[in-house]
Nucleic acid binder design. Structure first.
Lengths: 223, 223
DNA sequence: CCCTACCTGTCAGCGTTCCGTCAGCGGTAC
DNA sequence: GTACCGCTGACGGAACGCTGACAGGTAGGG
């Protein structure tokens, strides 16, 4: 999962980044509205945490612009003053959730995860596709109810595939969401990761569409 | 995916071409504004990377001309000076994204991919013409609802024919979109591809208009 | 502080599938 | 009738993706 953290206070930004990373997100951060505007425009994120008080360009304007441009990723808005009017304004602008400062980092992370789950069309922490079940709270994987020992990276791969279980996901997209803008990896890293997962999960879970990418074999996606 | 790289600095142009190719694009490049003007006018690209400082004709003028002429491919603008005013100017002229020099090649590629994704995002996943159905999510092909195993290249061929199902598509045009300006292939490659597809799909799907090209039948272009 | 176990990227090798090429044939237009 | 265009089946090189082995890095424990 890929998250964008927009926050100008360096200390909060650092904590935020750390907490989100600990929760399994690949985090990109920026500290002004202009950069946020362009990042949100041009890159794919599964979540945005957006502070409203920003240099150069106000957070609300950025959010409104994104929504006007048809970008529909979940956005969690932070604001210094927790007034009701600001909250309404944020929701109007297209925010999915709202958190007044100061807040406990644990709460932010919990809400962030809930937002991502919600955007996947599911309310609970348990997601299933076919034989495969992920527990977003415990970060565990199970096949037919039998727990499978998956590493953090493996879990994130499965989570992303599950989030997009209705389609084939290109390797480039997977690399981007697993590693962010770190392009140092050879393409083979992904293949190795998939191979290890398949060995643990057994056949019939992760499918390959040659020339296009990977997908979760749940229904009759095969051909 | 076909990309046009317009850049006059030979070294950057070479890097750019290589990076885009590595990312799966079929790349054509040119190093002056006039050629770019002409290429953008007369050929189809899924992405243009446009430097602003160009010999003969300024990049911004070229871009404005394209937009005025109704060309709507995504354009990523490069400029030597990363000032905010120039950025605004570029956006006004119709640029979809903007990258100040110097930049990391990885970032350029990431933005390029994001642009293409975004522009491809318009349009539903399921397309049908007659008996034939393409699922852009699963990258699958079906006839009368029966799945047909199509390879990546075959899928792209069908997708292009479907995109232009209202007319006959010339072999040269198909070759161009499947392979770019790589003329190393014999024309027969396309015929062999079509033959293999017809064997899989059965008769009555891909029609030939002798001397002109191919088309999808049951859209009554034939006769 | 070292040792260990584990995670994960890299590399080389392999099998499979893909697809461009070739040669020959048939149909169509004139 | 004939010349050209397009079709077909066979073949082989090449690309793609998979796998096992290995090593650098990291975290946890003693």
């Amino acid at each position: 999962m890929r998250a964008l953290a927009v926050e100008d206070d360096g200390r909060i930004a650092a904590d935020l980044t750390e907490a989100l990373q600990a929760s399994g997100f690949v985090v990109q951060s920026c500290d002004d509205g202009e950069t946020a505007w362009f990042l949100g425009d041009t890159e794919d994120f599964d979540l945005v945490v957006l502070d409203l008080g920003l240099p150069k360009l106000d957070g609300l304007s950025v959010l409104k612009h994104w929504r006007a441009a048809g970008r529909d990723m979940p956005v969690l808005v932070l604001t210094a003053r927790g007034t009701w009017s600001e909250r309404v304004e944020g929701i109007d602008a297209g925010a999915d959730d709202y958190l007044p400062k100061p807040f406990r980092m644990e709460e932010l992370v919990a809400r962030a995860r809930a937002l991502v789950r919600r955007s996947a069309g599911r309310g609970g922490a348990l997601q299933s596709v076919g034989d495969l079940t992920l527990d977003a709270n415990r970060m565990t994987v199970a096949r037919r109810g039998v727990p499978v020992a998956a590493t953090a990276l493996e879990y994130r791969l499965l989570a992303y595939l599950m989030l997009h279980s209705d389609r084939v996901v290109a390797p480039s997209e997977l690399l981007e969401h697993l590693y962010g803008d770190d392009f140092s990896r050879e393409a083979n890293a992904l293949e190795a990761l998939v191979a290890r997962l398949r060995r643990k999960l057994g056949p019939g879970i992760i499918g390959t569409r040659r020339g296009f990418g990977y997908f979760l074999e749940s229904s009759e996606v095969g051909a």
